[in-house]
Amino acid sequence: MTKFEIRGLRADVLIGEDERQEILKGVDLTVNSGETHAIMGPNGSGKSTLAYAIAGHPRYEITEGEVLIDGENVLDMEVDERARAGVFLAMQYPVEVPGVSMSNFLRSSVTAVRGEAPKLRQFSKELQGAMKNLSIDSGFAARGVNEGFSGGEKKRHEILQLELLKPKVAILDETDSGLDVDALKIVSEGINRSKETHQMGTMLITHYTRILNHVKPDFVHVFAGGRIAESGGPDLADTLESEGYERFVKAGA
């Protein structure tokens, strides 16, 4: 049983040498193992900022608050330590790293997170299986990390990593956008596998209710103006779908 807590989190985006802007204005959220929290909110409200700040992205700086995983302060950890502690971020825009092959990258990452190098044969079997589950052609393993991948291919590979690394908590930032109908199903199944097999806690950032038909949320939060403006059950998603964010944006302003 894992408890992931975000408490009073404030963060700035670092724009230039001494230019910065506060984006997160006090975020509170607790995610327990097995729970899925959908986070919905208008463009520019700070959802990705929340995700990146938790992961330790160099362009963001946390100015106040805490992020705890089972009581351990995530913010005291290096970026890679956070991942090894079981926090995973599927990025809205996965990064291309030319010249580093996907298979090399995955092996290094699995080795680091699991604390020991998997046997080569065993790993390649595991990798092939995981790729097959996500309908990823085996040829991708030889390509550079995300290099020249289409938008949807990048998203599938984020979930491939998720499945290999088996995090305790995953933040999925618009993993559904850019996916075709079939891919959405495939990717959703991948997320659900992780939820079932090891009770992954999930923060699912999305603009669309469609993915919520596949990955059932326990809670839905409205994110506006750099904080959670309202929380509710799965029904809240439908309300948002029909009414939009207007009332929250006004309230936040």
Partner: peptide, 19 residues
């Protein structure tokens, strides 16, 4: 680039080496 590799648990030194 380093952030992406490190966000997958790869220690900084190794991430630099890979890049």
């Amino acid at each position: 680039h380093l952030f992406y590799l490190r966000s997958r648990g790869i220690p900084e030194e190794e991430a630099r080496r890979l890049v």
